[in-house]
Design a protein around this nucleic acid. Structure first.
Length: 396
DNA sequence: CCATATGATTATCA
DNA sequence: TGATAATCATATGG
């Protein structure tokens, strides 16, 4: 409750969005592995910090053979596909990734754009690198020739030659490092342009929200999809699993905050799935001896597992008055229980509308207003808002 | 242009 | 680690 506002340092900033605290936390911690850890995520704040640390520190300590800074730059370029494998492999991987992502045109277009720019950077990097190497060699041989010529007029020790070569190489490797740094910067900027999803948010497709809402409202008693369920939903909606997680996180919190606002939506989706649910239940009851009734919306692997199915099953029994007793389908039917509740409540002919204590408040929301600790099967306390409650999200 | 909706990010917590 | 709550930044509808 008392936590500080996080926008301490980046109110106007356009990328990164690092709160001061987290920056400090990450900077003073070890980020040797930071880059590796988060590669593949979207814009990784780790990377930015990492690069920044490279840039800021580099002035102080320039060389020394083992140079950790250089190592890190190398690692990053490698991981980013700039310096590592061949161009063919990279683009093939990109194509594969694009194909695997479901082929949503919008996404892949941006991706290919990003890839193209990255390729450009890579080409520049390689040509520059080659140029430097060539120049280094040329310069070295040039100096060697000079020394050789001088050796006619004065004695020159092999030590001296070695020293000269060392100096030259150090000089050029420092130039090389600068190249690597600017390449890193370019890649980072590119990433923040293209991959910071926050920058260009796209709403999910109608279908996707439909599917997500269906799941949410038909699992209202416990809207926490398992990892598998998330994957399934992600596949169906052609979004990522983390997007599904985000969606459910947002949905839960926003639903809980203002149940009244979602009443209509809830009823809508209840009605929508009611038919299939009823069918499924009917089918389940019919062949209640043989288990494995088919859930309506779970395609191949019916994998929506529900922790408190037993509880819910009881709940349904008491609600309906009659009992679908005995049928072993508890777990499978569970997913429709909430849906049925909607219908039942609807036919109950009650409409408050103001969300005050709507008949249809989620039973599993405990007094704290949470689904999470379902250990208290307490009475149905609808977590209605106090009159003066402020919703910070909508009030700014 | 404004208010609201919404996806993503961050800080915290158990 | 996954959840919540607050917040941010962009989308969208009027």
């Amino acid at each position: 409750v008392l936590r500080q506002p996080r926008a301490l340092s980046c109110h106007g900033c356009n990328s990164g969005h690092l709160g001061m605290k987290s920056v400090l936390k990450r900077i003073d911690g070890s980020f040797r592995l930071a880059y590796k850890i988060r590669v593949g995520d979207q814009l990784s704040t780790w990377q930015l910090v990492d690069v920044m640390s490279c840039l800021s520190i580099r002035g102080a300590q320039e060389e020394d053979p083992p140079d950790p800074q250089l190592m890190r730059l190398d690692n990053m370029l490698l991981a980013e596909g700039v310096s590592g494998p061949e161009k063919g492999g990279g683009s093939a991987a990109a194509a594969a990734a694009a194909a695997a992502s479901g082929g949503s045109s919008d996404n892949s277009i941006e991706h290919s754009d990003y890839r193209a720019k990255l390729t450009q950077i890579r080409q520049i990097y390689h040509t520059e690198l080659e140029k430097y190497e060539q120049a280094c060699n040329e310069f070295t041989t040039h100096v060697m020739n000079l020394l050789r010529e001088q050796s006619r007029t004065r004695p020159i020790s092999p030590k001296e030659i070695e020293r000269m070569v060392g100096i030259i190489h150090r000089k050029f490797s420092s130039i090389q490092m600068q190249l690597k740094q600017s390449t890193c910067e370019a890649v980072m900027i590119l990433r923040s342009r293209f991959l910071d999803a926050r920058r260009k948010r796209r709403n999910f497709s109608k279908q996707a929200t439909e599917i997500l809402n269906e799941y949410f409202y038909s699992h209202l008693s416990n809207p926490y999809p398992s990892e598998e369920a998330k994957e399934e939903l992600a596949k169906k909606c052609s979004i990522t699993v983390s997007q599904v997680s985000n969606w459910f996180g947002n949905k839960r919190i926003r639903y809980k905050k203002n149940i009244g606002k979602f009443q209509e939506e809830a009823n809508l989706y209840a009605a929508k799935t009611a038919v299939t649910a009823a069918h499924a239940v009917a089918a389940a009851v019919q062949n209640n001896q043989t288990n494995s009734p088919t859930t309506p919306n779970s395609g191949s692997s019916g994998s929506f597992n529900l922790p408190n199915s037993g509880d819910m099953f009881m709940n349904m029994q008491s609600l309906n008055g009659d009992s679908y007793q005995g049928s072993q389908v508890g777990a499978n039917v569970q997913s429709q229980v909430d849906t049925l509740r909607h219908v039942i409540n609807q036919t109950g002919g009650y409409s408050d509308g103001l969300g005050g204590n709507s008949l249809y408040s989620p039973h599993n929301l405990n007094a704290n207003g949470g689904w999470q600790d379902a250990t208290t099967p307490s009475s149905v306390t609808s977590p209605t808002e106090g009159p003066g409650s402020v919703h910070s999200d909508t009030s700014n």
